[in-house]
Design a protein around this nucleic acid. Structure first.
Lengths: 162, 162
DNA sequence: GCAATGACTTGCGATTTGCAAGTCATCTTT
DNA sequence: AAAGATGACTTGCAAATCGCAAGTCATTGC
């Protein structure tokens, strides 16, 4: 029924509070998938490639909803289907995800194309603006198609700064 | 002896790799304390206020070291004491921590002074530069004294942009 | 009507956490 | 120089989580 209590508050530090909510190995991946891979449903997360177990997934979705980071939007056309969507509180995690992406790309031996990420690092504000725009428009296209298995696709309109 | 294996790699996504390293409720707090609270020793982390258990702390320090994020520097004057220090890979997590701080301050009901954090959000690049400068100089003074219990202290030299 | 689909539960063994207490080399004090 | 701190960890469990496989249970499609 209700959401689980989750870990108790530790200190009043904002970082600590944040980690009490999504300080585990799955929550931020779910948020990432909602944010840039265009995922919406339970099934998509389940088969999203990271291999999360369905009970853990259900638990994380519930916690994130309880924390006000995501919200359910049942679909009218097919009442079996539940669409999840980031709230504004959730989309505000975009900078965190972007920095994680950049750090992981620079320091982990990721097999992701680093030059694209470096490009994103240079155009940080534009990338974040694009992410938010897509969220506002409910644009279902993934921002990072290369993460989703497709070969070519839309990338942020890179009007170079200058 | 050696470090534990840690969680297996899941996908090649940089975010996923990052979370495999520090995707838990404690690692980033340790990194935060090294970065802005001036912590150095096991004891300081243990009594740092968040209430981490000593076995967990030992485990996290080992993992972070295995991941190349922190490094031990035994002290000559007192050979009981082990100083931990962020590596460059570790200090590069500063943007992530800063974003977490900002997000938590805006969306969690943190009891931290939000205006200071908003000020940091506005001067993002300068704050990050200051963090790095202190790391390079091995400056032992906490960047965020209000997180460390003291009332007044040094704050980043806020030369306003523009 | 009957098999699929989608979104979850349930069971349960394997880990991981969280205390509390104990080691074991250094210092420090007397 | 012996006795007592200190600092940095281990050890021993009990309890909470995780992860995998299997099972519900409403829709939907055919």
């Amino acid at each position: 029924m209700g959401a689980k209590p989750g870990p108790k508050r530790r200190s009043g530090c904002p970082v600590s509070i944040s980690l009490d909510i999504f300080g585990d190995r799955w929550s931020l991946l779910i948020i990432r998938d909602l944010m840039v891979r265009g995922f919406r449903t339970f099934r998509e997360f389940e088969r999203g490639g990271e291999g999360i177990a369905s009970n853990i997934l259900a638990d994380r979705l519930q916690r994130l909803e309880a924390a006000g980071i995501i919200r359910q939007e049942p679909e009218k056309d097919d009442r079996r289907r539940v669409n999840y969507r980031l709230t504004e509180k959730g989309i505000d995690l975009a900078p965190v995800l972007l920095d994680l992406l950049i750090w992981g790309s620079r320091h982990g031996q990721a097999d992701a194309p680093c030059e694209i990420i470096e490009e994103m690092a240079e155009n940080r504000e534009q990338v974040l603006a694009e992410v938010r725009r897509r969220w506002e428009r409910r644009d279902p296209n993934p921002l990072l198609p290369w993460l989703s298995g497709s070969e070519e696709g839309s990338r942020p309109q890179g009007k170079n700064k200058k």
